[in-house]
Design a protein around this nucleic acid. Sequence first.
DNA 1: TCGCCTTGCACTTTTGAAAAGG
DNA 2: ACCTTTTCAAAAGTGCAAGGCG
Length: 396
Amino acid sequence: MLDDNNLFQRAASSAYASMAAFTAAANMYNSFYPSTSNSNTTMDPVNYFGCSEKDLIRKFELNLMIWICGVDFIHNEMIITKNGRRLFPNLRVSVSELDPNTKYMILLDIVPMDDNRYKYHESAWNISGKAEPHIYGRYYVHPDSPQTGSQWMKQSILFNKVKITNSPMQNPNHIILNSMHRYIPRLHIVQASDSYSMRTGPLSTFIFEETVFIAVTAYQNDQITKLKINNNPFAKGFREPTHVKKINSKPLKRLQSCLPSDKPLKYDENLHRPYKCDSSLLSINSNSPPLQSTMHGAIADSTTPTYLDNSVGDHEQDSDINSMNFSTSYHQHFPSNSFYSSYASDPTPMIYNPAYTYMGPTSNQIPSTSTPMHFNPYGRYPTSVYQTNNYNPSFF
DNA sequence: TCGCCTTGCACTTTTGAAAAGG
DNA sequence: ACCTTTTCAAAAGTGCAAGGCG
């Protein structure tokens, strides 16, 4: 138990750092705005839109909330199921300095990090062979798309409904991944007013190294399991005290133990389980805000515990270490010289097809997420890569 | 035999409609 | 009559464990 706590303390502190890192503001070179002055007619090879980067600077703030597991010492895993499984932690993004009156669509997809298949052996992920071919062309379009820049910038954008699957036959909105393969999410911002113009609209793409994960059908690393159980509200039933009670006592006793003595409790004979008869119960030992807050809040975030983002809600903060009480006031900024990335070959016509230049690990061991990578500066389409260790605060 | 995948389970939170209250 | 708050059932999201499959 002590070891678990130590692990989690470590995870929490690292995660805090990572979280801060994710709260990045990237300077984004794209064609959201045409140049009006200082026009540089020299074509930059990386500029897809035919405009000089210097003409097209836009800032892009990222707030990838609670990628708690994307820390250096632990490789994140995401469960994939036939029916689709949500990503946890969720992806949350804030954008700024878009054209307030122009419509944009925001998309997410997930692409392979490399051409390897992995295997978890002796507490480490190792390359076990060549990767299965990736099925491209599945994008999660944010349900609020299209929206004007001002609407996108109004509040952070949450990707909590994205689902990953290993079954191509299921819901076409699910992103298809292969188990035991390593992936990274990509964020696309397209200037478009509908799905048709999306195919031709100016586009910028961002990836974040810390969000790399390995798709699995069952968790391999116990540490990942513990982190998810402790932080995912839906997995609350597996947390230690409750789980022990689940084995040793009946449901009614378990729930009663969590309740103040004066709170009434009913027992549903049909369901053979107690049910709530006091809304305050929802906030007891819970990471969720009290019911009233939920009902009146502008955003009822279904899966991301609101305590993690005090910039969005003003809910009471949970001081428990297990609650991963993050502050989001810390912002880092993207370096003025953006990187251009190309992790994988993508034949999809709508999105780009950068040359494959990922410089993978030389050993069998997969690199830490903080390992510097080599990016192709001449990829056809710009992809800004957030770098935790190499930012220029003065730029913002 | 082994490693990975599927399925059902018990548990949880979320959601939204209906009921109750002001 | 209208709006707000509460209640409650259903839906959906979790990890676990057992069994299936190649």
